[in-house]
Amino acid sequence: MSRFTPEEKVKLARHPDRPGTADFIDALFTDFFEQRGDRFCGEDPSILGGIARFHGRPVTVVGHRKGKSLEENLRCNFGMPSPEGYRKAQRLMKQAEKFGRPIITFVDTPGAYPGKEAEERGQGEAIARCLALMSALEVPIISVITGEGGSGGALALAVANRVLMLEHAVYSVLSPEGFASILWKDSSRADEACGVMKLTAQDLRRGGIVQGVLREPEGGAHTDWQAVFRTMDAALTRELAGLEKWKGPALARQRYEMFRAMGQGLPPAGREEP
């Protein structure tokens, strides 16, 4: 299925011209109404979210935003959220449950921001609350890892009933650079880390961590956005239809059990029911 090595996939996943959350929202949703702020102290543009229609149906959509120009990159902190971003995400997702809207998340972040103010305001607590909240929500949640799925900062938006990945996206416990520097005290061995980390969509599908892999155009998502949008649209339509039949408590239970089974030594690969 793939001619790219894990190192090459990491580069593709980080490609500046890869479609991001804002692009997917523009292309696949109508009536997007952006919701801002965490209602405690701030607004973090590195997480973009709001209400929109997906084929006519109201949904809540949330995702990491890296920004397209240098100015935007800086404003969005290169897609590395602060606690305000995660608390905004919690607010939007709780609201989705209140109004019975399915939740769609797009994951693309190097990780949560390791900054002084982020720590001061409880980065760990903010991520932990996202995980706890998402695990129990009684509406369908679909997450797509579209680019970089970096660490807890990515997982915080990916506790879903169905976790999908674009073909050349990556998802890992830490960036390959961080991994190499922690384990081998040498961040220049990042390429070697890519190989042992099993961070490709194909590896993760086999390990039962993601439930579906979405084909990218030859050469990667940045080469043909329209093709990616068509694939994404079809996948979201299919997964939403599959989850629609489920009642709230059954959705929460399925999500709990799916994550419960991860890493028991028996990965739930091949489990097809939502």
């Binding site: 997982l155 998802y171 961070l199 961590i209 994550f259 991860m262 890493g263």
Partner: peptide, 10 residues
Amino acid sequence: GIFSLMQMAK
């Protein structure tokens, strides 16, 4: 690796 990360959600 990723199996550790999933323990956070679990």
